[in-house]
Design a protein around this nucleic acid. Structure first.
Length: 263
DNA sequence: ATGGTAGCATAGCTA
């Protein structure tokens, strides 16, 4: 069983690349972030007859998370309990979407960016991650054997190996100690990085800024992760980052990250 | 010194 996560940066503008990624990696499940589409705007037509079904959770032109699956989409859940919100409470932010696909509980997550150290959005990010940790810890307390994958754009580079320049990010979000602690707290709750053992760093990234030729200059960050519960860890066969997908005209600024599980 | 690029509510915000 193959599961991937990808910050697609608009599913409508990149639906051809989405179909290509599904095919090229023979994916069973693709977790999308920044779909930038309301549920009624998701490009359903392109998936018709493909054997894949989808669900989207998007309420405005920003953010939005989606799941595409060919092994069914059961118990779909939009958001999790007591999720902190930011800004106008009427415009809820779609940052978490869960479903059970082929017996694995998958979550497509788009962690708040944080914007600037000390910004209201930064505190929202930390609160949001703490809430996620508590919720995800609860799932494992309820069932130690649960197969759970927490995947998406975490907007955190957990170690210095995960950024092209420690100095560049010293006064920016994504590498601060509170953010790294918040990420580690999810790991400590029982969810480990499924991909890193197969793609050791330093210099292994999943995101490169669109500006200033960041990709050809190899100036990236590793911020997209699939974390797995113990039962999923036991099924791991392999993992990869599809750096090729970042190349060429019309690429997302993020690369897909893929895990391969035993059947 | 506040650009550089890309996306969508095609104007100014978010990333």
């Amino acid at each position: 069983m193959r599961i991937a996560t990808w910050n697609v940066n608009s599913v409508r503008s990149r639906i051809d690349r989405v179909m290509g990624v599904l095919q090229r990696h023979d994916l069973d499940v693709l977790l999308l972030q920044e779909t930038k589409a309301r549920d009624d705007q998701f490009p359903a037509l392109a998936l018709e007859g493909s054997g894949y079904e989808f669900v989207n959770h998007g309420l405005n032109q920003w953010n939005g998370v989606g799941i595409i699956s060919r092994v069914g989409l059961e118990d779909v859940q939009k958001g999790f309990s007591d999720m902190p919100s930011y800004g106008d409470p009427a415009v809820a932010e779609a940052r978490a979407l869960g479903a059970t696909c082929g017996g694995v509980r998958v979550w497509s997550l788009y962690v708040p960016n944080g914007r600037e150290l000390g910004h209201d959005h930064y505190h929202y990010k930390l609160d949001w991650l703490a809430r996620l940790r508590d919720t995800a810890e609860g799932w494992l307390i309820e069932d130690r054997q649960a197969q759970i994958v927490l995947a998406g754009d975490w907007n955190i580079a957990p170690t210095d190996d995960d950024v092209w320049s420690v100095e560049y990010y010293a006064d920016k979000t994504h590498t601060s100690e509170p953010e790294r602690k918040a990420f580690e707290a999810v790991v400590d709750a029982g969810y480990t990085d499924l991909v890193r053992p197969y793609t050791p760093g330093p210099g292994v990234y999943t995101y490169w800024d669109y500006t200033q030729l960041a990709f050809p200059k190899k100036r990236g960050m590793r911020i997209d992760f699939l974390l797995g519960s113990p039962a999923v860890q036991e099924r791991m066969k392999g993992a990869s980052i599809d750096r090729e997908e970042r190349k060429g005209k019309g690429a997302s600024d993020h690369a897909p990250v893929i895990i391969d599980l035993t059947d």
